[in-house]
Structure formats: structure tokens, C-alpha cells
Design a protein around this nucleic acid. Structure first.
Lengths: 404, 404
DNA sequence: ACGAATTAGTATGTGTTCTGAACTATATGG
DNA sequence: CCATATAGTTCAGAACACATACTAATTCGT
């Protein structure tokens, strides 16, 4: 039971100050903001001299570029604009039950290349899945590098519990993977990138994508709930992913919402997943065509909802009701006041939204204010963007790693 | 809606290194450990020269004292033992519904003086409560200073939501306090102490007391549940209190555990407090003597339990069952594997323990392992110790504040 | 009993990095 | 064209950890 959070025993050295200030200055340089050295000095409290020296080093890393003299029409010598260099990016990849997705995101947040392939990965041999993923990734990376992009790192998101340090998928029930070592593939996806390729949980990555490329502009603290075949989640607190002592935090799919309810695949009872997972909703809606894939049946569900099918509507509203219970519990425990719904919950937003809102009102009036419920618009790129974004953040947090 | 967690915009300065290392060295000095400078150098990675210089400054602060030459029988020059100086301490105080408690805790963790006064504070005028508390506190502080102790700071814990920055009790339903300004009293409790007197939530403080003076030696990550008239909670993650973006985290009393259940005073429905709070348990046990206080009726409950009264036993077991649901949800969301129960839950441990364990087994087998359920032994000193301990930790984390 | 070995702690010079003040560079406005 | 304002650089000085060399105090072996 590896647990993080030990007292930092690392001594502070004089050089740490520079590392911290490099990251601090970099955090003040945005994609298109054209900030000047003087702006940064004013914003950070560092002297102009220090900022100049720090910026010089950041330019060396390639993460930052000078945009030439700004002409803002004011008096005095104009400054030189600085911005993150869009020629640096990271690879993001996702293995999910229904599809594979790969993309390259640059430091401006632009998705530079992107591929999604439908697939039926439930029970498929990991090596076959990983081989297909590799092929997709190489096409994406080649397209991006051809346009002048250099990769800094990457990330792979999977729908399950992972050990990022060892590159192992501990368990992904909906893929039927257990203790699957993917560390070799991680290296081949983006070879020899300075910040490596890191394994992550799909819902956690999607939560981060929402932070950086979605509703994060408005929400700095929220619970992200990812509706896929299973129900995953990610907690964002203070604009950072809260992953818990062992990295398993946010598992909202197995919060108890119906104490008298059904057994769950996790061995427990009354879990959210047993009433709001795709299979549960489909069963309640009476869409039980065993022959077709879950994805195809979800399409049937949507058709039924649009046709006004009462059983389908009730099934989805029931899911919304139970989502509300889980959200209330999470909000109480972790002090949150916003939720972002992704995956099939985002697809079903017009039916599930009102049910969720009324559930929240019933179980904890005022806890989640007006506007505190949002739906993701990132669709199948969410996890991939989050995984790539995490790699970019690793670079932005430790630019000194790129210096001699 | 004040939220913490903004990007730290403070620049790193050369002096920060020293501040960090002072705290680091201090963190390696325990109450009775008799560590030497050489031990600290080995543990921290700092050089002996740096440790010597840092220790010299720590001695100046008065937080640390030299114990004279250690004689450990090994070869070589013996080192000089260092320990936290027990002549420094902090005041802790608690206002609860049934009682007032005050104490002084020194840097060795010893409760140097201590007073508990039964009181019926529900609906009592805040100024009367605070006046009685002040009198108790002055007696305690006088006793402690008479024995040569110097106060570094203090803390006051109340059963409700607080704004520590402004010294205001936002809402304490079981006291009937709302927006009560106690900042003036905070200053008079322990005047002119270097680290101030800070307001906190009772359950959060008790959770910290458990960490520092209770089960914290075994658990670094747990949910503390405080059973008082209401049900409060505190999350400890990585040996630190997790207080959430606005400071309201850990409110396990209002997690939804019985979706079809009763209305709660918070306006919601099915909250844990409606089935495991003292009034709820007493009602279910049929102990409804309206004339006597809650505390007196809790004593009757205990007598009934010891007599084997079936209704009483069932009532408590029912509370344990619902506690299990809340614990499972918390453990899933925040990735915890231990719980510590305090307040009336600790008093009722022999009846509530088995029910809780079996509830956990039913709703999430394996989530909370054998030994992951513990009961507090700090009784009415828990919150007071936590509040005092927090003040001591503030001093230990920022020893440079005591230097010129 | 006495020197060798071992460990604790101190003194001193060096390198890193921030700060502050002086300086250069480049614009606007009358 | 010069006063003024703002951007950015240069350089001396201070703080601090480090490496190395030193002194101090003890045990072990003979």
C-alpha cells in the first residue's frame, strides 16, 4: 500500500530558488498574452534583473519565444512580447471500451493532429489493442512533427486503476485487464521525450482536460464524473487534480447511492455504477439487444429519448436522481460546489440535467448553486487532451529539466 | 465564496531556503528523541556545517533545548542531544453543546493543565458562554505559566462552520449561533502570543488531535467522525488536515446515507446526522425523556445498552450501519482506508463497532481492511488538544517568526 | 596506558542566486 | 530636440548551502 504525502525530507538548496522562480516566471507567460519582462517583474515581485536572467534561460529551453517589440501606443520604450512556443507539444492517447483515441496538443492548447478509431476492446488481447494504438499514435506524431512540432512528453489514459510509477494497469474491469504491464508501449508511443509518457486513469485525465481546455476557466474546484461503460470520476481542487494518498481518489462510481440496491461488480452494493453506468441505464430503458455493442445500444437509447419513449426517459432521469446523491456526498466531504459531467452524461444532458438539478435540490438545497452543474464539450478528446496536458504541465512545472 | 488554492505568486528568495531548512531541521527534533546535529545531517541530507548553523538559530527561538552529551556507548565523540523544549506550549479551548473545555499542551504533547465544565450551551447567550470560557482559560494559563511555561499560541474549537481569518462563527446550529464574532475573545484568551489564537471547527480539531496525540502514529490517512449532538468530521490526508477550497471539507454528517429518509435540519434529506446524531439514536432507542439534557439521556442510553435493552441495541446498530455507508462513500471519493470514531461513537464502541464493520463488509468488501476502524480515546480533550496542537504546529512550521 | 580509529561539531573559502542601484535603450509629447 | 517615461542590462553586495579541512571527545586494541 504505497502512500504519498511523507514529510519532505529534501533539504532546500540555493539552486531551488532558481528552479522555483523559473517555473513562476513561466506560469506568467501564456499562449498568446504577449507579456513583457517588465509585466512579469510587476506580477511576481521579482526584480527586472532577475526576470531578465530567468527569461533568458526559459528561451533556451524552447518553451518560450520572443514575439518582437510590442507597440501599445504608450510612452516609454516598448517591451518585447513573450509567449509559450506553439512548436512544443505532447502526445495524448486513450484506450476505452468502445474506441481508441490519439492526439497531439501544443503549448497553445491547440489539437494539432487527432485520430479516433472505433473498436471493441472488451476482452480483446492487450497486445492487439496496444499494437493498434501504436499505429494510430505514430500517424499522429508524424503529422505533428512534419508541421514543425517537437514532443515534450505524453500520456496514456485507460478506464481503470493504474500504477503510474511502474506503468501497470492494475485493473480495468470493463476491458478485462488485470496487472497488465504497458510500460514498454509507453516508451514506444513517443520515444525519448524529455518528460516521458505517463499512464493515467481516464476519468482523472478527462477531469484535467476540463480544467485546462474546458470549464476550468470558470471552475477551480469541482467533481468531474465520466460516464462510460463504467462511471469514473476526478476531483479537481484548487485547479489541481486531487488523487488521494494512493492515487485512487475520485472513484465516484462506487459511492453508495442506493443502500438497498443491487450488487456491484466491485463486490459492494448500491454503487452509483449499478444505477448510472451505461449497462444499467440501458437495462432500465429496456434496450436489451444482446447482439449489438454497448455503444450501438447507447445510440438506440438516444433515438428512443428523442422519440419521447417514456421508459427511456424514466431510466435516464433515475440515473440523474442517483447522480445527485453522489454529488451531494462528494460536495459535503470535499467542500465542492460544482460538477462537470462527461461521457454519456454529457450526451444525455438535456434529459439528465433537470433530474440531477432536482435531485440536488431535494438532498441538499443550496449546496450546488445555479450554474454549478456543467457538461463537458470535449467528447472523445477529453481524456487524450488531459493526458497530453498533464505532460505539458510537467514541462511547465520543471523547465530546468530542459537545460544543461 | 472565498476559495483557497490560488497559484503562489510569491517569488522564491535566497532567504526562503533558510526558512525551509529551519523548519526541516526542527521537524527532525522530537520531544524526547535526543537527536544530535550529526543525526539530523544524516536524516536531512544537509551538511553538518549547515545543521550546526541552523540548530544555533533554533536554540535562540527557545523551541529547542540542548540536553547535554549523549552517552550511547559507541565509538567516537558523543553528540549533544537536542529536544523540543517542554517549557513552550499552547492553549486549547472548546465550546461544545454540553460542556466547555480548556487546556494547555506543551511541545512534548503533555497536557499541563486542564479544566472541563459541564454547561448547557444550546441557545445560551454567546457573551455568557465566552465569559465563562475566559475564566476557565485564565485559570489554566495561570497554572501553566506558574510552572514555567511560555505560551506560543492557542486555538478555540466550536461545533460549527467558522471563518478563521475573521474570527467569526458562521453557523453553529446546535448552539444556535449565527455570524457570531468571537475575534475579541480570541485575543483575550492568550494575549500577545506570537502565533495568535485561531478559531476552528470542533471535528477538524479532534481529527488533528487524533493525528498528533492519538492514532496518528498508525494512520496517516483517515476520516475522523465526531459524534456529538451533531455529526462532524475531519479528513486527514498525508498527515495533514484536508479542509477543502473554502474550509468546509469533512462534513460527513450531511452525506446522504438514506435516500428515502427524513428531512434534516440542513434542509436536505437522508443525511447521516438524521440517523446517527445523538437525538436520532435516542429517539430510535425510545429514550425520549424531554425534560433532561441530551447528555443525561445519552447516559441513560448507555445504561440501557449495558442492561441489554434490545431497542437500544438495535438503535445503535442502525447508526453503525449508516456510518458504514458514509465511510464507504468517503473512502471511495478520497481514497482512504481507515476511520477513527470519536465522541459518542467512541463511547458506544462495543455496540457500534461490529455493526459498522459488517456494514463496511456489505457495501465495499476489502475497502477498509482489518484494523482500519479505530476509536478515539481522547474523550473531551480531543478538540482542545487539536486546537492547541495546531498552534504548536504553526510555531514548528515557522520558527523564524521567533527570531529578530 | 597510550595511540589509532571513529564520530561530533566548527571554521573557512567557493559558487549560486537574488537584490538594488546605476546605466543603456527606445519610445511619446510638447 | 529635449524632457519624460518605460524596458531591459550590468555589476557590486549579501545570504546561504556546500566542500574541505580542521578541532574535540570518545572507544578499542594492544
Amino acid at each position: 500500500m504505497r502512500e504519498q504525502g511523507a514529510a519532505s525530507t529534501a533539504p532546500g538548496r540555493v539552486g531551488d530558488v532558481r528552479r522555483r522562480n523559473l517555473a513562476l516566471v513561466l506560469a506568467n507567460i501564456g499562449p498568446n498574452t504577449r507579456v513583457t519582462r517588465a509585466d512579469i517583474a510587476a506580477a511576481t515581485g521579482l526584480t527586472k534583473a532577475s526576470v531578465s536572467s530567468l527569461v533568458a534561460e526559459l528561451l533556451e529551453t524552447g518553451l518560450v519565444e520572443e514575439l518582437g517589440v510590442t507597440r501599445d501606443g504608450e510612452r516609454g520604450r516598448p517591451g518585447v512580447g513573450l509567449a509559450l512556443d506553439a512548436r512544443r507539444g505532447a502526445l495524448g492517447a486513450e484506450i476505452n471500451v468502445d474506441y481508441l483515441a490519439v492526439g497531439v496538443v501544443d503549448l497553445h492548447g491547440t489539437l494539432r493532429s487527432h485520430e479516433v478509431a472505433e473498436a471493441v476492446n472488451h476482452g480483446r488481447r492487450p497486445e492487439d489493442v496496444l499494437a493498434e494504438l501504436s499505429a494510430l499514435a505514430h500517424r499522429c506524431v508524424d503529422a505533428a512533427t512534419a508541421s514543425g512540432l517537437t514532443l515534450l512528453g505524453g500520456g496514456l489514459a485507460v478506464p481503470g486503476l493504474v500504477d503510474p510509477a511502474r506503468g501497470i494497469v492494475l485493473t480495468a474491469p470493463n476491458l478485462r485487464w488485470h496487472d497488465t504491464d504497458v510500460s514498454a508501449v509507453l516508451e514506444t508511443l513517443a520515444p525519448e521525450v524529455p518528460f516521458g509518457v505517463v499512464l493515467s486513469n481516464e476519468a482523472n485525465s478527462a477531469a484535467l482536460a476540463e480544467l485546462w481546455y474546458g470549464h476550468g476557466a470558470f471552475f477551480r474546484n469541482y467533481l468531474f464524473i465520466s460516464g462510460e461503460v463504467g462511471v469514473g470520476g476526478g476531483l479537481v481542487i484548487g485547479s489541481e487534480l486531487f488523487s488521494g494518498p494512493r492515487g485512487y481518489a475520485g472513484e465516484v462510481g462506487h459511492v453508495v447511492v442506493e443502500p438497498g440496491g443491487r450488487r456491484c461488480s466491485c463486490g459492494g452494493r448500491g454503487c452509483l455504477e449499478t444505477v448510472a453506468g451505461q449497462e444499467a441505464i440501458l437495462a432500465a430503458a429496456g434496450i436489451t439487444d444482446g447482439g449489438s455493442t454497448t455503444a450501438a445500444r447507447m445510440a438506440s437509447l438516444q433515438a428512443a429519448l428523442e422519440a419521447g419513449d417514456a421508459q427511456a426517459v424514466t431510466a435516464v432521469e433515475r440515473a440523474g436522481h442517483y447522480l445527485g446523491i453522489a454529488v451531494v456526498s462528494a460536495a459535503r466531504l470535499v467542500d465542492l460546489s460544482a460538477v462537470v459531467l462527461g461521457g454519456h452524461f454529457a450526451v444525455l444532458r438535456q434529459w439528465i440535467g433537470p433530474a440531477l438539478t432536482s435531485s440536488l435540490d431535494g438532498f441538499a438545497p443550496g449546496l450546488v448553486p445555479e450554474g454549478g452543474v456543467a457538461f463537458s464539450e470535449l467528447e472523445t478528446t477529453a481524456a487524450l487532451r488531459g493526458a497530453a496536458g498533464a505532460a505539458l504541465r510537467r514541462a511547465l512545472a520543471a523547465p530546468y529539466e530542459l537545460l544543461g
